[in-house]
């Protein structure tokens, strides 16, 4: 007869009592579409902002391309989200209500509005149609792009998953810098170097911000950062670091003189941004399915007298 004393999972190196080492939380059921959407949503959101500002500065070449990227990303995004649903045909149920307590609800409305704006502006940019509507759609799309880039961090932070919830103060900044990086990198690919100076500055600045905010996040997470460093999430973290550093170096050296080099650098940076979203996603999955990660800190809080009072003897 097997005798289970319920010890084996660990937290901070110490054994944690658990039920046959079974996870306490359910594994998030989201599939590949969701981390990919985190990337395309950020790409689309920040590209709209970049486009609007480039337009104000009089850089029409960059603006038109960035609007196109924004529209394409905003068109791909809902497709990804719908295909992830367990019942894709019921996607319109997302718009049955508006709930501030559900970042997914808020995000659905942002996505619908931003997608409409970006499509209008892009249509106008290449055909000249809908000139009046475009005057409103452009600034609206650019503004909506900001929450579109960051709300996905709120979405994952607002869960019981420790690696996500505990990172709630930093994740939005990690996602924002990732979005800026994606927008800059995409513009490097689409825009001739003569017009791409803002994209170069954006990409290089965003790499720095992304690295710094990620480091600060992992530092403050302490033991909760473990899922970000282990397993597939850890590998993705390294892939991201390598492609970002290589992309940034290439951009710095040849990005101004050669469109080909800039496009190569942009591709590497895009890959890095995508890998980062996947790393965050995988870290959440790993932390949810590790009973030590869930029970350990809760038990420690109870022992410190900082629990919320679930247990009473």
């Amino acid at each position: 007869m097997s005798v289970d004393d319920g010890r084996a999972a660990t937290w901070e190196g110490n054994p944690v009592r658990s039920y046959h080492e079974q996870p306490v939380l359910k594994k998030p059921i989201w599939t590949w579409e969701i981390p990919t959407y985190f990337f395309t949503g950020g790409l689309g959101g920040a590209s709209a902002g970049l486009a609007q500002l480039a337009e104000l500065q009089g850089n029409g070449v960059l603006a038109r391309r960035a609007w196109t990227t924004a529209a394409a990303a905003a068109a791909v995004s809902p497709t990804l989200l719908i295909s992830d649903l367990g019942r894709p045909k019921r996607f319109l149920n997302m718009l049955r209500m508006f709930k501030v307590s559900s970042p997914m609800s808020v995000g659905s409305w942002i996505l619908v509005a931003a997608g409409t704006c970006n499509a209008t502006v892009t249509l106008n940019a290449w055909t000249g149609a809908l000139p009046r509507l475009r005057q409103i759609a452009a600034p609206a799309g650019a503004l909506l792009g900001l929450p579109m880039s960051t709300y996905t961090a709120a979405l994952v932070a607002n869960t019981a998953v420790p690696a996500w919830h505990e990172a709630r103060r930093e994740l939005p900044f990690v996602f924002a810098s990732g979005a800026a990086l994606s927008a800059g990198a995409a513009a490097l690919i689409t825009t001739p170097p003569a017009y791409a100076a803002p994209a170069r500055r954006l990409a290089l600045g965003a790499v720095v911000c992304e690295m710094v905010s990620s480091m600060m996040m992992e530092h403050r997470l302490g033991e909760h950062a473990r899922p970000y460093k282990e397993g597939l999430a850890g590998k993705l973290g390294w892939a991201r670091r390598l492609s970002m550093v290589a992309g940034a170096a290439m951009l710095h050296r040849r990005g101004e003189s050669s469109h080909l080099a800039a496009a190569g650098a942009g591709s590497m940076l895009l890959a890095g941004a995508l890998a980062k979203r996947w790393q965050v996603f995988r870290a959440g999955v790993q932390s949810a399915t590790d009973p030590g990660n869930v029970i350990g800190p809760q038990r420690a809080a109870v022992e410190r007298g900082e629990g919320h009072g679930a247990v009473r003897r």
Binding site: G6, V16, R17, S18, Y19, H20, Q22, V24, A160, P291, V294, I295, Q298, R299, A301, V302, G307, H308, A310, V311
Partner: peptide
């Protein structure tokens, strides 16, 4: 303790 039954001690 709750965790012995698979329940989180401080949900």
């Amino acid at each position: 303790d709750p965790e012995v039954y698979g329940l989180p001690p401080d949900p």
